[in-house]
Design a protein around this nucleic acid. Sequence first.
DNA 1: ACCAGAACTTAAAGCGTTTTAAATTGTCCT
DNA 2: AGGACAATTTAAAACGCTTTAAGTTCTGGT
Lengths: 355, 355
Amino acid sequence: MLLKEICRGEAQVDDGGTARHRNGAHKRPRLEDVAARVGLSTASVSLVLRGVAGPSERTRQRVLKAAADLGYQVDRTASTLASRRSRLLGVMVDIHSPFHAELVEHLHTAAEEVGYDLVLSTLTRTRDEQTAVETLLAFRSEALILLGPTSPADVLAVLDNKAPVITVGRRIADAALDVVRTADDEGVGQIVDHLVGLGHREIVYVDGGKGVIATDRRRGYRTAMRRHGLGDRIRVLAGDNTEAAGERAARHLLDGPELPTAVVAFNDQCAIGVLAAFTRAGVSVPGRISVVGYDDDTLSRLSCFNLTTVSQSAREQARHAVTAAVERLDQDRTEPREVVLTPRLIVRGTTGQAV
Amino acid sequence: MLLKEICRGEAQVDDGGTARHRNGAHKRPRLEDVAARVGLSTASVSLVLRGVAGPSERTRQRVLKAAADLGYQVDRTASTLASRRSRLLGVMVDIHSPFHAELVEHLHTAAEEVGYDLVLSTLTRTRDEQTAVETLLAFRSEALILLGPTSPADVLAVLDNKAPVITVGRRIADAALDVVRTADDEGVGQIVDHLVGLGHREIVYVDGGKGVIATDRRRGYRTAMRRHGLGDRIRVLAGDNTEAAGERAARHLLDGPELPTAVVAFNDQCAIGVLAAFTRAGVSVPGRISVVGYDDDTLSRLSCFNLTTVSQSAREQARHAVTAAVERLDQDRTEPREVVLTPRLIVRGTTGQAV
DNA sequence: ACCAGAACTTAAAGCGTTTTAAATTGTCCT
DNA sequence: AGGACAATTTAAAACGCTTTAAGTTCTGGT
């Protein structure tokens, strides 16, 4: 062991710092190195570094100092292997989505609070959900938090056999999975309530195409209209989640016999298309017509849009997702759970009294 | 060994699938399990699974089949430890930045082509560069690709001792680091050329505050103006990277004696503020005044803005970053290298002939 | 001095792979 | 049949840590 140490030392000297990075094999200090430095066993050092009770105060201090001097940093791969726990939550995200970005932000803090770390795997044009999830498992993630997955329920169910799956932001038929989401129908309901409260009766909805989310929102619109006795005023225009769709819908309305007094769009992106088309046509918003989006995108907050919209409380969803994971991992919960949060209407500048 | 197998088998049956996830300790099949299944050693299986030459075709097929049957997936932590290589590139990103999202997308494909994987660590309000980088190292990243780091050059230099650092998108004084970036001054120069070509002479620049990037772009503006003999027309308005700053600047211009014929903003965000203020004031763009941004944000592409801007070629930067990493890791390059790419002007709808 | 028990420390056995050197099997000649 | 060599296969030693059971050292009380 002494010999070994000397060898390492010599090698480092010979190395001279020039070939430091060769093959990424820059020697980082190991537990053994700091142990040798203070004349203790690696066991003690490990104990101190993990903050486990046992080692004396004197030992603690010396070890901490030595570790700092050497710039020691634990090797996650080794400790995962040894402890049989990675304490890692795998998160699948669409890196282009601002909403996911927000979720990740809160997932980080929530996970940290319960002693877990996050590993991210992103979807891209050339990287599908399958690949993303495999990466997460290869890192030995203990649970999988999937943000807005599009895989069918049965695929997710199979996945759940390898590690508990928590789906965020999407309703899942009745697979035995944990789901955290907001009530999309209710969110649109709140929008309609708000508009009706402002005296609107001619409220048009621009659809978001197929998909669970679009379905829920559309239903929310219909239900709310009927609730207000406006069942016969229900009017759904085809559309999708793009600005272009919003523009098309708005032009369609402009070409029509009479303009409604309010337009509710599937999401913010789409709403902005609507907004742009109206502005260009000289129709005042919210003077002549009110426009509402959904998602509380960064976009909607821009003062030039200042869009009334619905927020999905990223913070709460993230916390619930982490809690769900921890319950599965550390508290033996086996029953699936669905957490449905109430979205929050954000009234900004694109809604006003009906004319 | 046979006994051991039986034990594992029994345990799985007892488990019955209900307590599967307890402590994240779901037993995944190991190399040994697939070896046992085909009656070979783990060594052979390892060889086959990694595609190393040696095993006979017959063996190969049998192993592959067994692995598939068992749903075997290699455990990265173990193989990293054993092979002393993680083949992992650590990437620090600001998850809220659309530009970083694009870079990550291309980094993924570039890394894959050379047999590396990416591990992402994000900056958030509560997670600074220090923490992000430590996480990357804890995973044993072999190189660090930092997207737009703000840490001072000397901190980055120290970091480079632990693993080769490749900085993307930011100029670094003269640290011995690899840098990949675009020539910001040149980008702004292209904008000015474009405007001058359209007959503009009164071109105002809205500044981006302090910071290396802002400095470069401002310099680019000044240099280009002088180059066109417009040195006496140079006019820089205070600003930063926000929409609000753009609005302020535009209002300032509107209040002034005479409007310039073109405004160049530090970035797209800022340009959109400018745009919004002009539109609201009834000043036609590009009829009366031209506006240009920088970054080619998703924002700028929205048809309602359709902003003329400058693209930073995420794809090229990503490829160069990965190449730089690989050269350091696999080809013993020790000399730092700076790659400066030429940005590309994207002419859209906010620039036109000077009036 | 001696001893029980508390306080602290450590030896050693893994964790699931890779890798090297050695062992085994197979093939083709004489 | 025997031997040389190539083609396969494998035993066993890492990798850097955690963890458990077993020491060892201290206390304070007799």
